[in-house]
Design a protein around this nucleic acid. Structure first.
Length: 609
RNA sequence: GCUCACAUAGCUCAGUCGGUAGAGCACGUCCUUGGUAAGGACGAGGUCAUCGGUUCGAAUCCGAUUGUGAGCACCA
């Protein structure tokens, strides 16, 4: 999908979208008299407006709503701005029966010490609004917008507030751009990982197992295993040591680490076990599924005395963790309740933080380079000292927050890395750097992360002996450069559209015979490739060549070898690469060498020898 | 968790007014041995998500539950 056509307030497109939002609100009020308004801003590819509706509105009402909007546009309503003194504006909003606008007006006036508030009027519709707008609705193309969806949205984005009905729409300057955007969106649906996961037999879910608990099928497991192999190699080179830890721990551990204070909502409830002791008493214990690997890794750190000479100490694990994700959040592999993480914890001194962060960032770069991922942004996720729920969300240590956030921000500046500010996005134990990706369907997701933890090591009593012979508390850096297998594979499925590079492909080579007469030759090739750990297979011999090509193409298998009379006679194969029409006939040995190189280099394209 | 929508064969979907279920693909058997995106014939497949209600009768109407999707909130 192309980048959405963004607009800023000084551009015409912004004014068109903003004005269309008013036109839609006008039409909604016609259809649902007595509804009240929330916000209705322009967005990347259109606009939305929030309402408290007097009667529900669904997508089946869209045709009527669109028609009413077109009718309004045709009328050529002019937009008039009025600056209204504060008291009069308050009275007007109350009279209009707009309690949410009234609430916001109050806040605006207090925050910006305003003397007046801006209103816009077009036709019978009046809205408190900063603008800008078009001069007249005639400036808006009647065929360049399309209502998109209706969904719930909390007033002011706060789940403690009422839920409004949000209507989203696409809107552009002309019909062509709208049509292109809608077509691109529909095309993107075909790359949706949930759909491709089913079509390519990568993973499945089963109600009897549970919501958000993925079952990786053989094809999907190949991709997991290959990614894991990549991570293990990268980590070995970077000096990580691998560890393995249980999926559960006693609840007390999470009380110590602070997870029960700050992360309980995301944890499965405890398992209570009762054991009879020899003296007849009963021993009660409570265990919890781990929501993160760090507490276990901290205990490995704590298992022996550590010296500053041991630091940075890098402990890595491919661990499975369990999180009680809100039911409405669970979605395919992008949001699951069992997460497989290429996780590691790096224990270091304060002076080492910068170097460790820099080292981890270069590990990300390497992984993204290999996979050809480029469309991402960096976010510095900080705490929010003014968050009313801050006590639940973050450890209370303002000085630590400020100091550690500054360390990371300085490093990013020194490395000349652009980043966006993520106030209120920190982990409970410290600031983090998140890598944000946009999915094919336009959603922005948090993928890889590096997190600085100043809070848990002291709580759990971690220490090292410094060069001064005294005890010090280490920092812990949490990092997961490949995100979780689940979310990362979801991204890769969509990124590659299911057509994986050879090294990742569940089936790397499929051999297609022109007829059964060449089966022996074909089986010999498959056997030889499999002996070299190539995932090769023979196509069904019962179908026509056309059918076999079609099947392999639908399965998006990267390399097809066609063998018939000519190939058998010459000891060659005809290579047909996925998505490439030109074929190449070459000696099998030559293909084999090229294949080996392609796989070893994790090339995105086939490397000819 | 919240708002709205949806749930029929492994997949994609028909199913009229309430009268006991249908297609294509996939799958199985057989025929066909075919040089580049669907060769042919036959067959098997469903407690219409689950539970309850209305009705002489429910895939169809109503309710609840579970699950899925789009968003919101939360987040890797």
């Amino acid at each position: 999908m192309p980048d959405p056509e963004e607009s800023s307030p000084d551009e015409k497109l912004y004014r068109i979208r903003h004005s269309l939002a008013h036109v839609m609100a006008q039409a909604v009020l016609e259809m649902r008299e007595g509804s009240t308004l929330g916000f209705g801003p322009p967005i990347d590819d259109g606009f939305y407006y929030d309402f408290i509706l007097s009667e529900p509105l669904t997508e089946s009402d869209f045709p009527e709503l669109e028609q009413r909007m077109r009718r309004i546009l045709k009328k050529g309503q002019r937009f008039y701005q009025e600056e209204v003194p504060v008291e009069e504006a308050f009275a007007r909003l109350e009279e209009m029966g707009e309690p949410y606008k009234r609430e916001y007006a109050q806040e605006l006036v207090e925050r910006d010490t305003l003397q007046s508030l801006s209103f816009y009027r077009n036709g019978p519709f009046l809205d408190m609004c900063e603008g800008p707008h078009v001069d007249t609705t005639r400036e808006i193309a009647r065929d360049a917008f399309k209502l998109r969806s209706v969904a719930g949205a909390y007033w002011r984005g706060d789940s403690d507030n009422v839920m409004m009905t949000r209507i989203y729409a696409w809107a552009f300057a002309d019909k062509e751009t709208l049509d292109e955007t809608v077509a691109a969106f529909e095309l993107a649906q075909e790359r949706d990982h949930k759909r491709l996961g089913r079509e390519l037999d990568l993973f499945t879910f089963d109600d009897d197992v549970g919501r958000g608990l993925p079952l990786w099928m053989p094809n999907g497991t190949v991709i997991r295993d290959e990614l894991e192999k990549l991570a293990v190699e990268l980590e070995f080179k970077a000096g990580y040591q691998r560890v393995a830890t249980p999926h559960i721990a006693k609840s007390g551990l999470y009380a110590q680490t602070g997870h029960l204070d700050h992360y309980r909502e995301s944890m499965y409830p405890p398992m209570e076990v009762v054991e009879e002791t020899p003296d007849g008493a009963s021993l009660r214990e409570s265990y919890m599924l781990k929501p993160m690997n760090c507490p276990h890794h901290h205990k490995i750190y704590a298992a022996r005395l550590r010296s500053y000479r041991d630091l940075p100490l890098r402990l890595a694990e491919y661990g499975q963790v369990y999180r009680w994700e809100a039911s409405g959040a669970v979605s395919g592999l992008a949001r699951v309740r069992m997460l497989s993480m290429n996780d590691a914890h790096i224990y270091c001194t304060e002076n080492q933080i910068r170097d460790v962060f820099a080292e981890v960032i270069s590990e990300y770069d390497e992984a993204y380079r290999i996979l050809g991922l480029k469309d991402y942004t960096i976010r510095l996720s900080r705490w929010d000292p003014d968050d009313p729920k801050g006590r639940e969300k973050y450890v209370d240590a303002p000085e630590d927050w400020e100091r550690t956030e500054a360390i990371i921000a300085d490093l990013l500046d020194a490395m000349d890395i652009d980043y966006e500010d993520g106030q209120g996005e920190a982990a409970f134990y410290g600031p983090k750097l998140d890598v944000m990706f946009r999915t094919v369907t336009g959603r922005v997701e948090q993928l890889s992360t590096v997190q600085l933890d100043f809070a848990v090591p002291p709580r759990i009593g971690l220490s090292y002996v410094g060069d001064d012979g005294a005890e010090h508390v280490p920092y812990c850096i949490h990092r997961a450069p490949l995100s979780t297998h689940e979310r990362f594979v979801a991204l890769l499925i969509e990124h590659f559209g299911g057509a994986f590079p050879t090294w990742l492909a569940p089936v790397q080579v499929r051999v297609i015979t022109v007829s059964e007469n060449y089966g022996d030759y074909a089986r010999g090739l498959v056997e030889r490739m499999r002996a070299n750990f190539v995932r090769a297979e023979l196509a069904s011999e019962n179908d026509t060549v056309s059918k076999k090509i079609r099947d392999a193409t639908t399965r998006k298998i990267p390399n097809l070898l066609i063998v018939g009379e000519r190939e058998v006679a010459a000891g060659t194969v005809t290579l047909r690469r996925h998505g490439i029409r030109e074929q190449l006939t070459l000696p099998f040995e030559e293909f084999e060498a090229g294949l080996a190189k392609t796989i070893a280099n994790r090339s995105l394209e086939f490397t000819t020898p």
